[in-house]
Computed example of a mutant assay.
Amino acid sequence: MFPYLVKDLTDSNVYEINPDATKRLINALEYNVPQGKMVCALVTVGFYKAIEDPAKLTNENIHLANILGWCVQLLHSTFLMTDDITDSSKTRRGSPCWYLSEKVGLNCITDAAWIENLIYAILQKYFSKHRCYVPSIELFQETRKKMLLGQTLDMICTQNGVPQLNRFDMNLYKCIVNLKTGTLFSLPVKLAMHMASRGNEVLYKEVCKISLDLGHYLQVQNDFMDCFGDSNLTGKCGSDIEDGKCSWVIVQALQRASQTQRNILRNNYGKGGSENIAAVLSIYEDLKLPNIYGIFEEKTCARIGSDIEKLMSDELQHRFFRNFLNSIYKRQS
């Protein structure tokens, strides 16, 4: 659907811009949006199908659900585009980051703003007469606000280029993750519920809890793969150590490190030299963090699986979340 959606927007009067600006917008969209696993976009459509009245699963409604899914992907993509600048990342989804592309640079910020604005143009074009129109707008705005707050917390963990390791703990980490990842992952299921005709307050709370837990699990996986993953599989060169990120891995290390090990981490974490990165990774290995991660993954999957069993009464909803949990278990990319 993506080429159709791009053509529909750029050929219509949604944006009255000249051909050069249109070409740039199309390039930015095609380079950044239909990439990666698109988990949240697919969840939008999948969960809508799981909760909608079968009699209302028409081609038109499924078409609209797909459009909502692309709106979620647009939001996620704009966040990654600007996040890559903040983190000085080099690659994203196996390709150079957009801001490193020829003649882009910091103009990436404007491109990201254009793409985010498209979300509301799309919602107005396709959903202005739908009951989910206003709730969807509010959800996108609330999600973006929380993601920005999470990004702000993430940034102030490093001051003047120095990570504030004394502030790194699991409470801070969970707060950042819930705002940045948990909020984004709960967005598609909330959108699906607003679009469907069978949503209710009880289901809404159950779904939000499981979604936040899955979002946290996904982020911990990303943090672990940043340090220990294969870049050929992840499509991204890990940079959490040199960027001084408050990640699950460094928090676990600080909880277990001796004073000597903490001093080594303090002297090397947040620095980009190969010797610095190697010193940090050596501490991680000494603390057996890959084994600790394995234990975490097993316990987390068991707990989320138990919650799905207890909270999801509808078979389709139960199957949806169970299948999703199984699909990300022990993922390597």
Rank of each mutant, 00 (worst) to 15 (best):
N200V: 06
K209F: 03
T82A: 10
L165G: 13
L265D: 14
D154T: 05
G273M: 03
L9G: 05
P3Q: 13
F320V: 02
C40T: 12
K37M: 02
L42W: 07
R167H: 05
A65Y: 11
P135R: 07
A113P: 03
Y173G: 00
F47W: 08
N27T: 13
N13Q: 12
F224L: 00
E315G: 01
K310G: 02
N291I: 04
L57D: 09
E60D: 13
D111A: 12
K245F: 12
T58M: 10
P96A: 10
S333Q: 12
T91G: 00
E142C: 01
P163H: 06
E102I: 11
F47L: 09
V251D: 11
Q219H: 04
Y120S: 13
S186H: 10
H63G: 09
L80M: 08
N13C: 11
K271R: 14
A278N: 14
L214G: 05
E30A: 02
L68T: 10
P96N: 03
S101V: 09
T44C: 12
I85H: 04
I277P: 11
Y99R: 01
Y48W: 12
N323Q: 12
L287D: 05
E298S: 08
G272L: 02
Y4Q: 13
A121W: 10
S128N: 10
V6Q: 09
C71A: 01
I241N: 06
L179Q: 13
V45K: 10
V104H: 08
N171V: 09
R262V: 06
F79W: 10
R331S: 03
N222W: 08
C157Y: 02
S313E: 14
Y204V: 02
E116G: 01
N13I: 03
D11W: 01
I109K: 00
I122D: 09
S327D: 04
T260F: 11
D213T: 00
D226M: 03
E315W: 07
N32S: 13
M312C: 14
T143I: 14
N326R: 12
L191M: 11
V72N: 00
Q73P: 00
T300Q: 14
R198P: 00
M38C: 06
D53F: 01
Q124W: 15
L325T: 14
L265A: 15
L165N: 07
M225T: 00
D87S: 06
E52L: 07
Q259C: 12
N232E: 07
G238P: 06
A113R: 06
N32F: 02
S12C: 07
G305I: 09
E102T: 13
V39C: 06
